[in-house]
Design a protein around this nucleic acid. Structure first.
Lengths: 113, 113
DNA sequence: CCTATCGTACGACGCTCTTCGTATTTGGAT
DNA sequence: ATCCAAATACGAAGAGCGTCGTACGATAGG
């Protein structure tokens, strides 16, 4: 309503503030892991509503916030939508190989019920 | 008192029963992550009392159980002690690279206050 | 047998988490 | 201006988690 560029501010931890325990905790929830996998599979950033999740909107807002505050994703308003993107660069710099091995493990686990 | 080898039974998940979410959750607690790091640094298995932890014995029993039931460690009685070892083979087979990247990330994070 | 040691069981407390419904704000479209 | 779609805030219910103290069980050794 007032900002020059029309985007509201959104709190993100800096790269140095990202903690391993927080990232692991964020990824340990099935809904959030699914969100991260969806993001990782898309080259572009996605709006919140483009996810197909087994929870209500309230709950997914909560999970998006957990992911953002733990440093796993970056969120930015764009009009009425909010675009979400993985913080791949930061995560890879801080915890090399971690994100990829988690994504690979999730994909592998999904294939073998 | 009665078993031929003097060891009581202890429930462990099979390799197929180990879930990524459970492992991530187990590793997301600072105390448990410390336990795992200590185990990873030792070539031999360690008794519960050989850990130097900032919690009481009750609490560490609880954390050891979470690690065992999630499939991260293997526990076995030996006399009055209980020996603990990482399930490296199973974890590496299920989630290649995951454990190593978590351990490396934990070590890296510790070095940078 | 008695005792010391190692670990467990149980219950309790407070805190956090996941989930939801409803009311509200924000910004684009009509 | 009006309406609608996207997302948030707020509060609440219910479950789960981390922590502890104390009492208990199991084993080795005197």
């Amino acid at each position: 309503m007032d900002a020059a560029n029309g985007t509201r501010a959104l709190a993100h931890p800096t790269r140095e503030e990202i903690l391993l325990e927080g990232v692991l905790h964020a990824l340990s929830d099935p809904v959030r892991l699914r969100m991260v996998r969806t993001l990782a599979a898309s080259p572009e950033r996605l709006s919140c509503s483009s996810f197909d999740l087994p929870v209500t909107k309230s709950t997914s807002t909560h999970h998006f916030r957990v992911l953002r505050e733990s440093g796993v994703i970056r969120q930015e308003y764009r009009g009425t939508s909010k675009m979400n993107g993985l913080r791949r660069d930061d995560l890879d710099a801080l915890f090399p190989g971690l994100l990829d091995s988690v994504l690979a493990a999730a994909a592998r686990q999904e294939r073998s019920p």
